[in-house]
Design a protein around this nucleic acid. Sequence first.
DNA 1: AAATAAAATTGGTAGAACCAGTGTACCATT
DNA 2: AATGGTACACTGGTTCTACCAATTTTATTT
Lengths: 269, 269
Amino acid sequence: MRSNESILISERSNPSAAFAFRPVPKNRISEDALAQLVDMIVSGEVKPGERLPGERELAQSLSITRTSLREALRRLENMGLASVRQGDGIYVRDFRREANLDFINFQAGRGAALEPQLLLGMDEARRLMSAMVVSLAARRADASDIEELRRVAGECPPDGSPELLSGKWDYDFYLTIALASMNGAFVCLINTMKGMFATFRPMYSLLDEGRRESIKDLNLRLVDAIESGDERAASAIVEERMRQDMEDLAKRAQSPEKRKSKTRKAGAK
Amino acid sequence: MRSNESILISERSNPSAAFAFRPVPKNRISEDALAQLVDMIVSGEVKPGERLPGERELAQSLSITRTSLREALRRLENMGLASVRQGDGIYVRDFRREANLDFINFQAGRGAALEPQLLLGMDEARRLMSAMVVSLAARRADASDIEELRRVAGECPPDGSPELLSGKWDYDFYLTIALASMNGAFVCLINTMKGMFATFRPMYSLLDEGRRESIKDLNLRLVDAIESGDERAASAIVEERMRQDMEDLAKRAQSPEKRKSKTRKAGAK
DNA sequence: AAATAAAATTGGTAGAACCAGTGTACCATT
DNA sequence: AATGGTACACTGGTTCTACCAATTTTATTT
C-alpha cells in the first residue's frame, strides 16, 4: 500500500519525467523489525510452536521500543506467522501451513528472496485468477462496464513506456474488469494481488516486449470478447498471454508439473 | 487467528464435552477502535480522499491512547482503507476500489453486516477457488499426498457434529488439498479464506445436513478423483456440492447473474 | 513575485509506569 | 487423593509524557 502513495509523489514532483521512479522506501522502524522477525521464522531459526522471548526482551534485542515492536507484532499475527496471548507469550506458528496471503504480500513487497517454487505458484495463481475474473466479467458486464473498460484499455500507454512498466495501468485495467465482474470479493483479491506483484511487475512487462501484438490491441480484443459474453474466448486471451510469461519464468525453476509421473501409483480406481 | 487458540483451549478443558464452545472474544481495544474506524469509512461518513483528524484528536475521540490507535491504524492501512503519511495526515481511500482481502477478513471476522452482494461474491469465489485447487491437486498430487488426503478424509467427524460445524476439520481437509497442489500461493489463499469464512462456516455446515451423501463419503470420492488425476471429475464434485450452498444463499439476495440481460447491447461485434 | 527561512502541524519513536490476563506452586478443604 | 482457593511471578495490553522527523503553512527576505 506504500507504493501507491509513492507513485503519486513521484508523479507530482516529476510530472514529465521519462523515468518511473521506484517508490522510495519510508521505512517505518516497525517494518524493519517485522522483517527481522519474519526472517527468523522463515529461516527456521525458531520453530513452529516455539515461544519467542517476551516483548520487552525482544524489543531490546531489536534495539527498538516495545511500542514499535508491538506494531510489528500486530502484523506478524495478521500474516499468520505468530499468535500472541496476553499473560502467556508469543508463539511461532507453522508458516508453511498457516501463513496467509498477507505473508506473501509482505515478503514480496520488501523484495525478500522467495522460493522459486512459491514464485511459480504465485504466477500460476495470478494466471488462473485473472482468467477467472475475466470470465465472470464476460458473463455479467453491462453496457456501462464495457464502455469503461474500453476507455481504460484505450488509455494504455505504449509498450515499453515507464507507465506500463510500473504496473499502475495494468492494475487499473484489471481492477476495472473485476468491478465489471460484479464480485466484490474479486475486487479485493485483485487488490491483494496488486501488492503481491508490485515489485515483480516490471519483470512481467519486460516479458511482454517480444510480443507481436501490442498490449493495447490485445486488451481491446479482450474487451470485445467480454462484450460479446464469450467467457471462453475472453479467458483464453488472458491465459495465452500469461502462459508465455509463465513458461519463461519456469525456466528459472524446476517445473512442479512433472512431479506426478514419478511417484504416482498407476491405475488408481 | 484467535479462534484457533480458543478451539484448542476448549478442547483441553472439555475433552468429552458435547458442546462446541464458541471462542470467548478477547477484544483488544485497538480492534474495537479499528472497527469504529472501518464503520466510519464503509458507511460513507467520511469519503474517499478526505483527511481524517490527527492521531491525537482521533485517539481522544475514541477515548484511547495514541499508542493503541496507531496499532489500529497499521491494520487500517493494511486493509487498504487509509494511507498514513508522516507530517501530513491520515487519508481515507476508496474502499470499494482499493480494499483488499484483509478488509473482508476483518469485517467477516467481527461479524459485521456485509452487503448481500458481497456475500454472494465471497461464496462464488470460494466455490471457484476450491474447484481450482482441487483441480491442481489432481494434476500434481503424488502417492504420499493421496495417502495423507485419505487419512484426513477418513477422520471426518459425522455430519452434524460440533467438530464439523466449527469448520476446523473442513479447513484441515482443504489445506491438505492445497498442500497437495504443490502451490504455496494457494495454501496461503486457503488460509486467507479460512479467516474470511470462519464465522459463516456453521451456516454452510447446516446446509450440508440435507445431503443424501455424507460429507465423509463425498470427500473420499473426491480423493479418489484426485488420485486418478481426473481434474474435471474432481472439480465437478466440489462445484456440485458448493453450487447447492450457493443456490440456497442466493435466495437471500438478488442474483447478479441476471443483471446482464437488461442493459446489454445486443449483437456486440 | 519568487525564493528562502521560520513556525506550526502531523505522524514516528522512545521510555516508563501501571493494568489485566496466565500459569505455577502452594495451601486449605473435602 | 482430588478438588478448589490463594498468592505470586510473568507476560501481554494500555496509558502517559516527552521528544524526533517529515510535511505543510506562514512569514520573511531577496
